[in-house]
Write a protein that binds this DNA or RNA. Structure first.
Lengths: 192, 192
DNA sequence: GTCTATACCAAGATAGAC
DNA sequence: GTCTATCTTGGTATAGAC
């Protein structure tokens, strides 16, 4: 059963996707969630609390959709798993949009806010390592350094493509094509 | 002779680099420029005017540093010119920082602001075409589609690496290495 | 836990003198 | 063109009743 607090965080995720972290107005959030502003302060203490907890909430959700796979589907090959993991972030679904938007906001905010940098750097490191791990299964003969480099390039490219998509500079289908080709290229590079 | 208005825009560029487009406070800008807030409104009409004109100003400056080359240096090969053009954006100088920061802010803002999208998409298109042109000189046998794809990947990667650098997730030297390797890979890909 | 009403403040913007 | 002083607003946060 979704608690009231959870439904406020769901509403907050929608508002953030629409207005950004820095554009979130407590009043708009209250309207979106169908509650009073006072209730929001009761649950979250202050604006920063709303942001902190909602970002955490969004992150947890993302972990779920990144990990979950259809249990009836045949187990994917390593290469398929790599592609799926990366392409998952370039999909026009509510959850992905909300997550990517929040991630982009976090990245942009960290440029000016020291306090965000450590968390963001750690999350980035984990994400890079995960991709490096998948690449290592596809190309087991590669050195750790080469794998890390390829993973850094692919995830940084993905962030760049994602921002272009969200900001209306690049159609989603084209972004997916470009990323797929980059995966091909990086895998080939590791194999040579 | 730099006019007062110009010196306010220079100050605005510094404030934007420090606080971001959305963090720019007119009062802080006034202090930075050593003038009153009233004077700023006299010259720029309103906050939006400050932003519009300063972003244009920064863009012009960027065009200059991207184009300018040491006249005494030997003319670069096509490959060198390609590398220089891209790596120029990954340098720790005041101008590049200000420009990259502004660009990142613009990109992030456009996710929530329709009115910015058209300009941004056009600027992106021009930038991609310029890089595609340079790639075409390096690999003249490539198809236009292949050149465009490589240019889109390289510029999107550059944006991603730049944001990671500015947000403290990636040391500058490493970002440069990753980009150089990506250029190698894309050029090789076009040649095969 | 949840609301209505409101205090409070930071920041954008303007009036009017020089 | 430039300043000091001030108005105004939009947005965060709280008091107090239910």
């Amino acid at each position: 059963m979704a608690s009231r607090k959870t439904s406020i965080m769901e509403a907050a995720a929608r508002v953030i996707a629409r207005r950004g972290v820095r554009g979130l107005r407590v009043e708009e959030l209250a309207a979106e969630a169908g509650v009073s502003t006072a209730l929001i302060y009761y649950h979250f203490k202050d604006r920063t609390g709303i942001l902190r907890q909602t970002l955490e909430f969004i992150n947890d959700r993302a972990e779920r959709y990144t990990t979950e796979r259809d249990p009836d589907a045949p187990p994917p090959t390593a290469r398929e798993e790599l592609e799926q993991t990366l392409l998952l972030e370039l999909q026009d679904t509510v959850e992905v949009r909300e997550n990517s938007t929040a991630w982009g906001e976090l990245r942009a905010s960290a440029v000016f806010d020291e306090t965000l940098r450590e968390d963001l750097a750690r999350a980035t490191r984990i994400w890079v390592q995960e991709v490096a791990g998948l690449l290592g299964v596809v190309q087991p003969m590669s050195s750790a350094v080469a794998l890390a480099g390829a993973a850094e390039r692919l995830t940084a490219l993905l962030e760049g493509l994602s921002m272009r998509w969200l900001s209306g500079s690049l159609p989603l289908a084209h972004a997916r094509t470009l990323l797929t080709e980059a995966i091909d290229t990086e895998v080939a590079r590791l194999g040579s």
